[in-house]
Design a protein around this nucleic acid. Structure first.
Lengths: 202, 202
DNA sequence: CCGGTAGGTTACTCCAAGTAAGTTACGAGC
DNA sequence: GCTCGTAACTTACTTGGAGTAACCTACCGG
Protein backbone atom coordinates (compact mmCIF):
# COMPACT_ATOMS: atom_id res chain seq x y z
CA UNK A 1 0.00 0.00 0.00
CA UNK A 2 2.64 2.50 1.11
CA UNK A 3 5.02 1.24 -1.56
CA UNK A 4 2.22 1.67 -4.03
CA UNK A 5 1.73 5.29 -3.01
CA UNK A 6 5.40 6.16 -3.32
CA UNK A 7 5.78 4.42 -6.66
CA UNK A 8 2.68 5.91 -8.18
CA UNK A 9 3.23 9.62 -7.64
CA UNK A 10 1.07 10.54 -10.56
CA UNK A 11 -2.61 10.06 -10.74
CA UNK A 12 -5.09 10.39 -13.58
CA UNK A 13 -6.62 13.83 -13.57
CA UNK A 14 -10.16 12.76 -12.77
CA UNK A 15 -9.04 10.68 -9.82
CA UNK A 16 -6.82 13.43 -8.50
CA UNK A 17 -9.64 15.91 -8.80
CA UNK A 18 -11.90 13.67 -6.80
CA UNK A 19 -9.27 13.32 -4.12
CA UNK A 20 -8.79 17.06 -3.94
CA UNK A 21 -12.51 17.64 -3.55
CA UNK A 22 -12.72 15.07 -0.81
CA UNK A 23 -9.85 16.56 1.18
CA UNK A 24 -11.03 20.11 0.61
CA UNK A 25 -14.49 19.25 1.90
CA UNK A 26 -12.88 17.89 5.02
CA UNK A 27 -10.67 20.91 5.64
CA UNK A 28 -13.40 23.41 4.82
CA UNK A 29 -15.75 21.62 7.18
CA UNK A 30 -13.16 21.49 9.95
CA UNK A 31 -11.87 25.00 9.76
CA UNK A 32 -14.51 26.93 7.88
CA UNK A 33 -13.87 28.39 4.47
CA UNK A 34 -11.98 31.46 5.65
CA UNK A 35 -9.56 29.75 7.99
CA UNK A 36 -8.92 26.82 5.66
CA UNK A 37 -5.65 27.31 3.80
CA UNK A 38 -4.72 26.08 0.38
CA UNK A 39 -1.34 25.10 1.81
CA UNK A 40 -2.97 22.70 4.23
CA UNK A 41 -5.27 21.23 1.64
CA UNK A 42 -2.37 20.71 -0.76
CA UNK A 43 -0.34 19.06 1.95
CA UNK A 44 -3.12 16.68 2.89
CA UNK A 45 -3.74 15.77 -0.71
CA UNK A 46 -0.02 15.23 -1.19
CA UNK A 47 0.53 17.68 -4.02
CA UNK A 48 1.94 21.15 -4.31
CA UNK A 49 -0.34 24.13 -4.03
CA UNK A 50 -0.22 25.18 -7.71
CA UNK A 51 -1.86 21.88 -8.54
CA UNK A 52 -4.96 23.00 -6.73
CA UNK A 53 -4.96 26.10 -8.88
CA UNK A 54 -4.32 24.04 -11.99
CA UNK A 55 -7.38 21.96 -11.22
CA UNK A 56 -9.79 24.50 -9.70
CA UNK A 57 -8.45 27.94 -10.57
CA UNK A 58 -8.81 29.47 -7.11
CA UNK A 59 -9.74 28.78 -3.53
CA UNK A 60 -13.25 29.83 -4.36
CA UNK A 61 -13.23 27.52 -7.36
CA UNK A 62 -12.41 24.68 -5.03
CA UNK A 63 -15.26 25.63 -2.72
CA UNK A 64 -17.59 25.80 -5.69
CA UNK A 65 -16.48 22.33 -6.74
CA UNK A 66 -17.22 20.99 -3.27
CA UNK A 67 -20.59 22.71 -3.06
CA UNK A 68 -21.48 21.42 -6.50
CA UNK A 69 -20.62 17.89 -5.51
CA UNK A 70 -22.47 17.98 -2.20
CA UNK A 71 -25.59 19.50 -3.70
CA UNK A 72 -25.60 17.03 -6.56
CA UNK A 73 -25.37 14.13 -4.12
CA UNK A 74 -28.12 15.59 -1.99
CA UNK A 75 -30.33 16.01 -4.99
CA UNK A 76 -29.70 12.50 -6.25
CA UNK A 77 -30.57 11.19 -2.82
CA UNK A 78 -33.82 13.08 -2.46
CA UNK A 79 -34.93 12.34 -6.02
CA UNK A 80 -34.42 8.62 -5.49
CA UNK A 81 -36.48 8.84 -2.31
CA UNK A 82 -39.44 10.68 -3.79
CA UNK A 83 -39.50 8.40 -6.83
CA UNK A 84 -41.18 5.93 -4.47
CA UNK A 85 -43.95 8.34 -3.50
CA UNK A 86 -47.47 8.19 -4.87
CA UNK A 87 -49.43 10.63 -2.70
CA UNK A 88 -48.58 14.26 -2.12
CA UNK A 89 -47.99 13.69 1.56
CA UNK A 90 -45.78 10.74 0.83
CA UNK A 91 -43.80 12.82 -1.62
CA UNK A 92 -43.27 15.54 0.94
CA UNK A 93 -42.44 13.15 3.73
CA UNK A 94 -39.99 11.00 1.77
CA UNK A 95 -38.25 14.02 0.31
CA UNK A 96 -37.82 15.63 3.70
CA UNK A 97 -36.69 12.44 5.34
CA UNK A 98 -34.07 11.93 2.66
CA UNK A 99 -32.85 15.48 3.22
CA UNK A 100 -32.48 15.09 6.98
CA UNK A 101 -30.89 11.66 6.62
CA UNK A 102 -28.34 13.00 4.15
CA UNK A 103 -27.49 15.82 6.53
CA UNK A 104 -27.08 13.43 9.45
CA UNK A 105 -24.79 11.12 7.45
CA UNK A 106 -22.76 13.77 5.69
CA UNK A 107 -21.97 16.30 8.38
CA UNK A 108 -19.00 17.54 6.43
CA UNK A 109 -20.99 18.25 3.30
CA UNK A 110 -23.60 19.99 5.39
CA UNK A 111 -20.99 22.07 7.22
CA UNK A 112 -19.70 23.09 3.82
CA UNK A 113 -23.03 24.07 2.35
CA UNK A 114 -23.31 26.66 5.06
CA UNK A 115 -20.47 28.56 3.43
CA UNK A 116 -22.25 29.14 0.17
CA UNK A 117 -22.68 32.77 1.10
CA UNK A 118 -18.89 33.12 0.82
CA UNK A 119 -19.04 32.65 -2.91
CA UNK A 120 -18.53 36.02 -4.51
CA UNK A 121 -18.02 35.42 -8.23
CA UNK A 122 -21.33 36.32 -9.89
CA UNK A 123 -21.23 33.48 -12.41
CA UNK A 124 -20.56 31.00 -9.64
CA UNK A 125 -23.35 32.42 -7.52
CA UNK A 126 -25.67 31.91 -10.45
CA UNK A 127 -24.46 28.36 -10.88
CA UNK A 128 -24.95 27.47 -7.26
CA UNK A 129 -28.32 29.17 -7.22
CA UNK A 130 -29.14 27.16 -10.32
CA UNK A 131 -28.36 23.93 -8.51
CA UNK A 132 -30.49 24.98 -5.59
CA UNK A 133 -33.23 26.00 -7.95
CA UNK A 134 -33.34 22.53 -9.42
CA UNK A 135 -34.37 21.40 -5.97
CA UNK A 136 -37.06 24.02 -5.49
CA UNK A 137 -38.24 23.57 -9.09
CA UNK A 138 -38.76 19.91 -8.39
CA UNK A 139 -40.86 20.64 -5.32
CA UNK A 140 -42.83 23.33 -7.13
CA UNK A 141 -43.53 21.13 -10.15
CA UNK A 142 -44.67 18.22 -8.02
CA UNK A 143 -46.93 20.60 -6.14
CA UNK A 144 -48.30 21.94 -9.42
CA UNK A 145 -48.90 18.38 -10.54
CA UNK A 146 -51.07 17.71 -7.53
CA UNK A 147 -52.70 21.15 -7.59
CA UNK A 148 -53.03 22.25 -11.22
CA UNK A 149 -54.83 25.44 -10.23
CA UNK A 150 -52.05 26.78 -8.06
CA UNK A 151 -50.41 30.00 -9.13
CA UNK A 152 -46.89 29.35 -10.43
CA UNK A 153 -45.44 32.10 -8.28
CA UNK A 154 -47.08 30.65 -5.19
CA UNK A 155 -45.81 27.17 -5.96
CA UNK A 156 -42.33 28.61 -6.16
CA UNK A 157 -42.76 30.45 -2.90
CA UNK A 158 -43.96 27.30 -1.18
CA UNK A 159 -40.97 25.39 -2.41
CA UNK A 160 -38.60 28.07 -1.15
CA UNK A 161 -40.34 28.09 2.21
CA UNK A 162 -40.02 24.34 2.56
CA UNK A 163 -36.34 24.36 1.62
CA UNK A 164 -35.60 27.25 3.99
CA UNK A 165 -37.52 25.60 6.79
CA UNK A 166 -35.57 22.37 6.40
CA UNK A 167 -32.19 24.00 6.29
CA UNK A 168 -32.86 26.06 9.36
CA UNK A 169 -34.26 23.08 11.21
CA UNK A 170 -31.21 21.02 10.25
CA UNK A 171 -29.01 23.61 11.97
CA UNK A 172 -31.20 23.42 15.04
CA UNK A 173 -31.00 19.62 15.04
CA UNK A 174 -27.25 19.89 15.50
CA UNK A 175 -27.97 21.32 18.91
CA UNK A 176 -30.69 18.77 19.63
CA UNK A 177 -29.18 15.28 19.36
CA UNK A 178 -32.48 13.78 20.51
CA UNK A 179 -34.07 14.98 17.28
CA UNK A 180 -33.28 12.53 14.50
CA UNK A 181 -34.24 12.68 10.82
CA UNK A 182 -37.64 11.07 11.35
CA UNK A 183 -38.69 13.47 14.09
CA UNK A 184 -37.40 16.48 12.18
CA UNK A 185 -39.42 15.35 9.18
CA UNK A 186 -42.52 15.07 11.36
CA UNK A 187 -42.09 18.60 12.63
CA UNK A 188 -41.89 20.10 9.16
CA UNK A 189 -44.72 18.01 7.77
CA UNK A 190 -46.89 18.79 10.78
CA UNK A 191 -46.44 22.46 10.17
CA UNK A 192 -46.73 22.74 6.42
CA UNK A 193 -48.75 19.75 5.28
CA UNK A 194 -52.14 21.28 6.02
CA UNK A 195 -51.19 24.38 4.09
CA UNK A 196 -50.15 22.25 1.14
CA UNK A 197 -53.24 20.08 1.41
CA UNK A 198 -55.49 23.13 1.38
CA UNK A 199 -54.01 24.04 -1.97
CA UNK A 200 -54.52 20.59 -3.38
CA UNK A 201 -58.16 20.46 -2.36
CA UNK A 202 -58.97 23.96 -3.59
CA UNK B 1 -19.72 72.92 7.42
CA UNK B 2 -16.46 71.96 5.74
CA UNK B 3 -14.56 74.23 8.13
CA UNK B 4 -16.37 72.48 10.97
CA UNK B 5 -15.22 69.07 9.73
CA UNK B 6 -11.60 70.07 9.41
CA UNK B 7 -11.57 71.74 12.80
CA UNK B 8 -13.24 68.87 14.62
CA UNK B 9 -11.10 65.91 13.74
CA UNK B 10 -11.88 64.06 16.90
CA UNK B 11 -15.15 62.50 17.82
CA UNK B 12 -16.45 61.01 21.04
CA UNK B 13 -15.88 57.29 21.12
CA UNK B 14 -19.54 56.28 21.06
CA UNK B 15 -20.28 58.48 18.09
CA UNK B 16 -17.24 57.29 16.21
CA UNK B 17 -18.19 53.70 16.89
CA UNK B 18 -21.62 54.28 15.48
CA UNK B 19 -20.16 55.86 12.38
CA UNK B 20 -17.79 52.94 11.88
CA UNK B 21 -20.62 50.45 12.16
CA UNK B 22 -22.68 52.37 9.66
CA UNK B 23 -19.89 52.56 7.09
CA UNK B 24 -18.86 48.96 7.65
CA UNK B 25 -22.38 47.77 7.08
CA UNK B 26 -22.39 49.63 3.80
CA UNK B 27 -19.06 48.25 2.61
CA UNK B 28 -19.79 44.70 3.76
CA UNK B 29 -23.14 44.84 1.97
CA UNK B 30 -21.60 46.21 -1.21
CA UNK B 31 -18.62 43.95 -1.48
CA UNK B 32 -19.39 41.01 0.74
CA UNK B 33 -17.43 40.28 3.87
CA UNK B 34 -14.44 38.66 2.19
CA UNK B 35 -13.82 41.30 -0.43
CA UNK B 36 -14.44 44.21 1.90
CA UNK B 37 -11.14 45.65 3.11
CA UNK B 38 -10.39 47.35 6.38
CA UNK B 39 -8.41 49.92 4.39
CA UNK B 40 -11.49 50.95 2.47
CA UNK B 41 -13.70 51.05 5.52
CA UNK B 42 -11.13 53.16 7.38
CA UNK B 43 -10.87 55.52 4.45
CA UNK B 44 -14.60 56.00 4.18
CA UNK B 45 -14.93 56.59 7.90
CA UNK B 46 -12.07 59.09 7.70
CA UNK B 47 -9.76 57.44 10.23
CA UNK B 48 -6.68 55.30 10.03
CA UNK B 49 -7.00 51.55 10.01
CA UNK B 50 -5.66 50.89 13.54
CA UNK B 51 -8.62 52.83 14.83
CA UNK B 52 -10.93 50.14 13.56
CA UNK B 53 -8.85 47.62 15.49
CA UNK B 54 -8.83 49.85 18.52
CA UNK B 55 -12.62 49.92 18.48
CA UNK B 56 -13.55 46.42 17.29
CA UNK B 57 -10.46 44.26 17.67
CA UNK B 58 -10.57 42.65 14.26
CA UNK B 59 -12.37 42.55 10.96
CA UNK B 60 -14.56 39.82 12.34
CA UNK B 61 -15.23 41.92 15.43
CA UNK B 62 -16.50 44.64 13.16
CA UNK B 63 -18.76 42.19 11.36
CA UNK B 64 -20.05 40.95 14.69
CA UNK B 65 -20.81 44.53 15.73
CA UNK B 66 -22.77 45.08 12.53
CA UNK B 67 -24.68 41.81 12.82
CA UNK B 68 -25.46 42.59 16.43
CA UNK B 69 -26.84 45.98 15.50
CA UNK B 70 -28.92 44.74 12.58
CA UNK B 71 -30.41 41.87 14.51
CA UNK B 72 -31.23 44.09 17.46
CA UNK B 73 -33.03 46.52 15.17
CA UNK B 74 -34.90 43.71 13.49
CA UNK B 75 -35.97 42.32 16.80
CA UNK B 76 -37.11 45.67 18.12
CA UNK B 77 -39.14 46.14 14.98
CA UNK B 78 -40.88 42.78 15.08
CA UNK B 79 -41.57 42.99 18.82
CA UNK B 80 -43.23 46.36 18.40
CA UNK B 81 -45.37 44.90 15.63
CA UNK B 82 -46.58 41.85 17.50
CA UNK B 83 -47.33 43.89 20.61
CA UNK B 84 -50.46 44.94 18.74
CA UNK B 85 -51.60 41.37 18.12
CA UNK B 86 -54.38 39.69 20.09
CA UNK B 87 -55.06 36.46 18.16
CA UNK B 88 -52.49 33.83 17.25
CA UNK B 89 -52.97 34.44 13.55
CA UNK B 90 -52.58 38.16 14.04
CA UNK B 91 -49.41 37.59 16.00
CA UNK B 92 -47.97 35.45 13.24
CA UNK B 93 -49.05 37.77 10.48
CA UNK B 94 -47.87 40.99 12.09
CA UNK B 95 -44.53 39.47 13.06
CA UNK B 96 -43.91 38.15 9.57
CA UNK B 97 -44.98 41.38 7.94
CA UNK B 98 -42.62 43.36 10.16
CA UNK B 99 -39.80 41.01 9.20
CA UNK B 100 -40.38 41.34 5.47
CA UNK B 101 -40.83 45.09 5.72
CA UNK B 102 -37.60 45.45 7.63
CA UNK B 103 -35.79 43.42 4.99
CA UNK B 104 -37.25 45.51 2.18
CA UNK B 105 -36.26 48.77 3.86
CA UNK B 106 -32.85 47.73 5.10
CA UNK B 107 -31.32 45.90 2.17
CA UNK B 108 -27.86 46.54 3.52
CA UNK B 109 -28.55 45.04 6.90
CA UNK B 110 -30.12 42.05 5.22
CA UNK B 111 -27.20 41.62 2.84
CA UNK B 112 -24.98 41.62 5.89
CA UNK B 113 -26.92 39.09 7.89
CA UNK B 114 -26.26 36.60 5.14
CA UNK B 115 -22.60 36.62 6.10
CA UNK B 116 -23.17 35.34 9.60
CA UNK B 117 -21.71 32.01 8.55
CA UNK B 118 -18.36 33.77 8.14
CA UNK B 119 -18.06 34.28 11.86
CA UNK B 120 -15.54 31.79 13.17
CA UNK B 121 -14.79 32.76 16.76
CA UNK B 122 -16.76 30.32 18.93
CA UNK B 123 -17.75 32.90 21.56
CA UNK B 124 -19.03 35.19 18.83
CA UNK B 125 -20.94 32.40 17.18
CA UNK B 126 -22.62 31.74 20.48
CA UNK B 127 -23.46 35.39 20.89
CA UNK B 128 -24.99 35.68 17.44
CA UNK B 129 -26.86 32.45 17.91
CA UNK B 130 -28.06 33.83 21.23
CA UNK B 131 -29.48 36.89 19.50
CA UNK B 132 -31.19 34.73 16.93
CA UNK B 133 -32.47 32.51 19.68
CA UNK B 134 -34.18 35.45 21.33
CA UNK B 135 -36.25 35.68 18.18
CA UNK B 136 -37.14 32.00 18.03
CA UNK B 137 -37.71 31.92 21.80
CA UNK B 138 -40.25 34.69 21.40
CA UNK B 139 -42.13 32.79 18.72
CA UNK B 140 -41.98 29.57 20.70
CA UNK B 141 -43.20 31.19 23.90
CA UNK B 142 -46.10 32.90 22.15
CA UNK B 143 -47.00 29.59 20.57
CA UNK B 144 -46.85 27.89 23.97
CA UNK B 145 -49.07 30.62 25.36
CA UNK B 146 -51.76 29.87 22.82
CA UNK B 147 -51.22 26.08 22.97
CA UNK B 148 -50.28 25.17 26.56
CA UNK B 149 -50.22 21.47 25.72
CA UNK B 150 -47.58 21.75 23.04
CA UNK B 151 -44.29 19.98 23.64
CA UNK B 152 -41.53 22.50 24.36
CA UNK B 153 -39.24 20.85 21.82
CA UNK B 154 -41.91 21.02 19.16
CA UNK B 155 -42.60 24.67 19.88
CA UNK B 156 -38.92 25.34 19.40
CA UNK B 157 -38.84 23.39 16.17
CA UNK B 158 -41.84 25.32 14.83
CA UNK B 159 -40.18 28.60 15.63
CA UNK B 160 -37.02 27.54 13.83
CA UNK B 161 -39.02 26.41 10.84
CA UNK B 162 -40.84 29.72 10.63
CA UNK B 163 -37.62 31.72 10.90
CA UNK B 164 -35.87 29.57 8.30
CA UNK B 165 -38.84 29.80 5.98
CA UNK B 166 -38.90 33.58 6.18
CA UNK B 167 -35.22 34.01 5.62
CA UNK B 168 -35.20 31.78 2.61
CA UNK B 169 -38.28 33.44 1.19
CA UNK B 170 -36.70 36.86 1.70
CA UNK B 171 -33.80 35.77 -0.50
CA UNK B 172 -36.23 34.60 -3.13
CA UNK B 173 -38.13 37.91 -2.97
CA UNK B 174 -34.97 39.66 -4.07
CA UNK B 175 -35.40 37.92 -7.40
CA UNK B 176 -39.13 38.55 -7.50
CA UNK B 177 -39.72 42.32 -7.31
CA UNK B 178 -43.43 41.76 -7.79
CA UNK B 179 -43.56 40.05 -4.41
CA UNK B 180 -43.73 42.68 -1.67
CA UNK B 181 -43.80 42.22 2.11
CA UNK B 182 -47.56 41.72 2.25
CA UNK B 183 -47.60 38.99 -0.38
CA UNK B 184 -44.58 37.26 1.11
CA UNK B 185 -46.33 37.28 4.48
CA UNK B 186 -49.42 35.73 2.89
CA UNK B 187 -47.40 32.94 1.37
CA UNK B 188 -45.82 31.94 4.67
CA UNK B 189 -49.03 32.25 6.64
CA UNK B 190 -50.93 30.28 4.00
CA UNK B 191 -48.48 27.46 4.32
CA UNK B 192 -47.89 27.25 8.05
CA UNK B 193 -50.97 28.73 9.68
CA UNK B 194 -53.08 25.60 9.47
CA UNK B 195 -50.29 23.59 11.04
CA UNK B 196 -50.03 26.09 13.86
CA UNK B 197 -53.80 26.23 14.27
CA UNK B 198 -54.01 22.46 14.52
CA UNK B 199 -51.71 22.64 17.50
CA UNK B 200 -53.71 25.35 19.17
CA UNK B 201 -56.97 23.45 18.79
CA UNK B 202 -55.55 20.11 19.93
C1' DC C 1 16.85 3.67 -24.24
C1' DC C 2 14.56 7.98 -25.75
C1' DG C 3 11.05 11.28 -26.56
C1' DG C 4 6.79 13.29 -25.69
C1' DT C 5 2.88 14.23 -22.96
C1' DA C 6 0.60 14.98 -18.98
C1' DG C 7 1.10 15.60 -14.28
C1' DG C 8 3.91 17.94 -11.19
C1' DT C 9 7.47 21.27 -8.15
C1' DT C 10 10.19 25.13 -5.98
C1' DA C 11 10.65 29.71 -5.27
C1' DC C 12 8.61 33.75 -5.48
C1' DT C 13 5.22 38.15 -5.46
C1' DC C 14 1.74 40.81 -3.58
C1' DC C 15 -1.99 42.26 -0.81
C1' DA C 16 -4.73 42.86 3.09
C1' DA C 17 -5.21 41.79 8.16
C1' DG C 18 -3.10 43.18 11.85
C1' DT C 19 0.64 45.70 14.88
C1' DA C 20 4.57 48.63 16.84
C1' DA C 21 5.91 52.92 17.80
C1' DG C 22 4.84 57.27 17.98
C1' DT C 23 1.73 61.87 17.47
C1' DT C 24 -1.70 65.37 18.39
C1' DA C 25 -6.43 67.44 19.22
C1' DC C 26 -8.63 69.57 22.58
C1' DG C 27 -10.44 70.65 27.09
C1' DA C 28 -9.51 72.04 31.75
C1' DG C 29 -6.98 74.62 34.90
C1' DC C 30 -3.99 78.33 35.98
C1' DG D 1 -3.19 82.92 26.55
C1' DC D 2 -0.41 78.92 27.86
C1' DT D 3 0.52 74.35 29.50
C1' DC D 4 -0.41 69.72 30.60
C1' DG D 5 -2.72 65.45 30.39
C1' DT D 6 -5.85 62.35 28.37
C1' DA D 7 -8.11 60.32 24.85
C1' DA D 8 -8.29 59.96 20.11
C1' DC D 9 -5.32 59.32 16.48
C1' DT D 10 -1.33 58.24 12.66
C1' DT D 11 2.59 56.35 9.82
C1' DA D 12 5.28 52.68 8.75
C1' DC D 13 5.82 48.17 9.06
C1' DT D 14 5.31 42.67 9.41
C1' DT D 15 3.43 38.44 8.14
C1' DG D 16 0.63 34.80 6.32
C1' DG D 17 -1.84 33.01 2.75
C1' DA D 18 -3.75 33.45 -2.14
C1' DG D 19 -1.94 33.10 -6.26
C1' DT D 20 1.92 32.75 -10.08
C1' DA D 21 6.39 32.28 -12.90
C1' DA D 22 9.63 29.35 -14.34
C1' DC D 23 10.91 25.06 -14.53
C1' DC D 24 10.86 19.69 -13.62
C1' DT D 25 9.79 14.72 -14.17
C1' DA D 26 6.92 10.32 -14.14
C1' DC D 27 5.73 7.14 -17.13
C1' DC D 28 4.19 5.03 -21.35
C1' DG D 29 4.88 3.81 -26.07
C1' DG D 30 7.87 3.05 -29.83
Amino acid sequence: MEAETVKRRRMPKAQRMEQMLSVAEEVFAERGYLAASMDEIAERVGVSKPMLYEYFGSKEGLLIGCVHKARTELRTRTEAAIAKASTPEEFLRLGLLAFFEFIAEHTKSWALLRHEASITVPSAQEEVEGIRQQQTDLIASVLSGFAPDIDALEAEAFAEIVVGACERLALWCERRPSVGPALATDYVVNLVWNGVAARIKA
